[in-house]
């Protein structure tokens, strides 16, 4: 197999090329680790190596993936694998990009639970109520949805798929004490209605979350939609 890895340092970028074999069950992260044993300047992030920390997001043959969760054999095309950094974020070095947008976007959408702390008793919540937002709490902030999102091509102020999934998670959590419509208004300030339904977020999410659907649900819950006459759901 031919392996190409995009390198970047000090404003210079180029491709390294390797001829390599790979094991049938080898992950892309394991393959990169093998290459790095030979060239220790090759730089990429990795941590848990078990698809739970969201660190190792890169592009393999133009698809945004978690390197530790993806098998080499599932991504090669014509005996070639091209590894690149993700889109829409500033590259710092090789496959490492600036991820400060994560904190920034969470701040913008008030992405935190609101309640008074009471150590004497818990909020009650039925399993059915939990189910409404449980899936959304699986998000590992890997950013894959953000790097692929078409709405961000048009306006960088779009909070991004994962950020709206967070908003959804609080709006549909029966325990959260912040006014639901207020949460939705904040989401709207961050361009909730800019989503163009391209579905890319849903396709790339390694945790099977569809931010597109979450955005739709938030729009449906909006008591004060911006263009209620002409807007057609689904």
């Amino acid at each position: 197999m031919k392996l190409k890895i995009k390198r970047f340092l000090n404003n210079k970028s180029y491709f390294d090329e390797y001829e390599v074999d790979f094991r049938d069950d080898e992950t892309i992260l394991e393959l990169l680790d093998r290459i790095r044993d030979k060239d220790r300047s090759l730089t990429y992030r990795s941590f848990c190596r078990s698809s739970i920390c969201g660190t190792c997001t890169i592009k393999a043959n133009n698809k945004t993936i978690l390197a530790c969760k993806s098998k080499v054999k599932d991504f090669i095309e014509n005996d070639e694998l091209v590894i690149e950094p993700v889109d829409k974020a500033k590259v710092i070095k090789d496959l490492v990009v600036d991820n400060s947008f994560l904190e920034e976007k969470i701040k913008k959408v008030n992405g935190w639970f609101v309640d008074e702390i009471d150590v004497t008793k818990e909020n009650l919540q039925t399993p059915e109520e939990l189910k409404k937002y449980d899936k959304q709490t699986d998000c590992i902030l890997c950013g894959a949805c953000f790097y692929e999102c078409d709405a961000l091509e048009y306006d960088k102020n779009f909070a991004g798929p994962f950020a709206f999934t967070k908003v959804y998670r609080f709006v549909f959590d029966s325990r959260d004490k912040m006014d639901k419509q207020q949460r939705i208004e904040i989401a709207k300030e961050n361009l909730l209605y800019n989503c163009i339904n391209c579905q890319k977020c849903a396709i790339v999410c390694p945790k099977g979350i569809s931010s597109m659907m979450d955005i739709k649900m938030l729009q449906m819950k909006d008591k004060n939609p911006p263009f209620s006459d002409s807007f057609n759901f689904f």
């Binding site: 935190w112 639970f113 309640d115 008074e116 702390i117 009471d118 150590v119 004497t120 008793k121 818990e122 909020n123 009650l124 919540q125 039925t126 399993p127 109520e129 939990l130 937002y133 449980d134 709490t137 609080f170 959590d173 325990r175 959260d176």
Partner: peptide, 23 residues
């Protein structure tokens, strides 16, 4: 332990629940 679990519940940790709504 029970106090800090409840504190985290009020911070929003989505604990799995029993039929009666308790953790």
């Amino acid at each position: 332990a029970p106090k800090i679990i409840r504190a985290m519940e009020h911070m929003g940790v989505p604990f799995s629940r029993l039929g009666n709504g308790k953790i």
